[in-house]
Amino acid sequence: MPATEAAARPPRRIAARRPDTGATAGRRRARPRRRSTLTSYLLVAPAVLLSALVVVVPGVLTAVAAFTDWDGIGLKARWIGFANFSSILRDPVFTTALGNNIRWMLLFLTIPVAIGLLTALLLLTRPRSRTLYQVIFLVPYVLAPITNAILWLNIVYNPLSGVVGYANHHGLNLGEPLSGLHTAIYAVAAVDIWHFWGFLTVIYLAALRQTPVEQVEAALVEGANGWQLFRYVYLPGIKSTLQLMWVMIIIFSFLAFDYVWLMTQGGPAHATEMLSTYAYSFAFASFQFGKAAAVGLIMSLFGLISSFLYTWLSRKDLNA
């Protein structure tokens, strides 16, 4: 936690300076200072308390519930130790779900990142059409997962009335992507990637545009080609943004829920089961809140690891 220590230094320095002002002056000044500090705490309180009430308190309860057989309906619950965890870890569906989360992560770490980076680099040299393209690329990103999922289900993947069904009837056999055991997860990921990559374009473009013009010009004067320009001038500048996006993608990959639940609910035969859908089914289909909590806790572990990474990468922000 070196960031915390560095960040905590300024207030401490003010505190150390206080005795220098002399005893009477210090006392006279102390009252309004204390009152304004109290006001400051009151101003921070609503945001922190609201977040704590919604996130921390239920979060702690989840951590406790994971060791009980709570059904989520009554107040009765029995302490059963690690029974939930051992039964989950023995469940083959858990392994499938974890594998799917990892596959999801690998897909998202590569495909949208590649498209986002490519389009951002192309837009970097096109200042006039840049805004228009950004708006077009972002349209799927600003639409609700429900609408995106339903429109893909109905007009693209539907075997009767969708584009896929139309292609199947006209000799181009695409099968039924969402019902295939091996294709379903890619069919769902395709929709989520379609909705997501434009976001990365915008982020990468903003990062690329922060590269100092002099460096680019100097490299061009020295005869750098396009690849060298990217590799030695742009890439070092956007490295931290790339890292941060990767960390965020890892976090989101272990939480992926919306598109999977909307399009397949984890099916067919658990082919698209994710940790999130697995937990959700425990809670709201079979009322095993204890097990759902245990899965939630395991998911959070991945989140926590990534979260430490994220905090570490954002430590510059603290010193800003």
Binding site: T4, A15, V55, S314
Partner: peptide, 26 residues
């Protein structure tokens, strides 16, 4: 304006990445 501001910042950073599934059920 408060002495514990780094703690508050870190609290928000960590809570930003807490999965909804961790607090959804309770």
């Amino acid at each position: 304006k408060i002495r514990i501001w780094p703690a508050v910042m870190i609290y928000f950073m960590v809570s930003m990445t807490v999965p909804i599934q961790l607090f959804l059920f309770p």
